[in-house]
Design a binder for these strands. Sequence first.
DNA 1: GCCAACGTTGGC
DNA 2: GCCAACGTTGGC
Length: 152
Amino acid sequence: MQYWLMKSEPDAFGINDLYSRPNQTEHWDGVRNYQARNMMRDDMKLGDQVFFYHSNCDEPGIVGIMEVVREGYPDFLAFDPDDKHFDSKGDPANPRWIMIDVKYIKTLSRTITLKELKQKAELAEFILIKRGNRLSIMPVTQYQWDFILSLE
DNA sequence: GCCAACGTTGGC
DNA sequence: GCCAACGTTGGC
């Protein structure tokens, strides 16, 4: 089993939104970055655990945990002209963009903030805090996962 | 709202 | 294939 982190803006879709969905499950749509796409398509497997990260908000940080419950499949929003994630070059016979389904597992007792994560020597190699990183999906090592949870 | 960092696009 | 222009991300 592998570990991951996925970012979302809480104004658009936060952890409480995931919690409120039927079966506490939702598809993770709208990813339009090839590196992130490749991870969803090739590497994210059923049962993998994922940190839910709130970005672009008052207190950026890790707020909860979810689990991969469906592996990569075509992101249908890429074919919807009315959706903001529409891709005019999309070809249903050869889908370019991929999504997965995730299920809510838990909300952490507190937000483990980006500010706090940056101060930990143990996380010096964590992709999230590398300068200039903009990936919305990234792998987390077992060591990083355990260490971050120990901060809760 | 600003802007640094980075990815993508498209002319050549 | 280079690279300037442009768009997006996301912390602050």
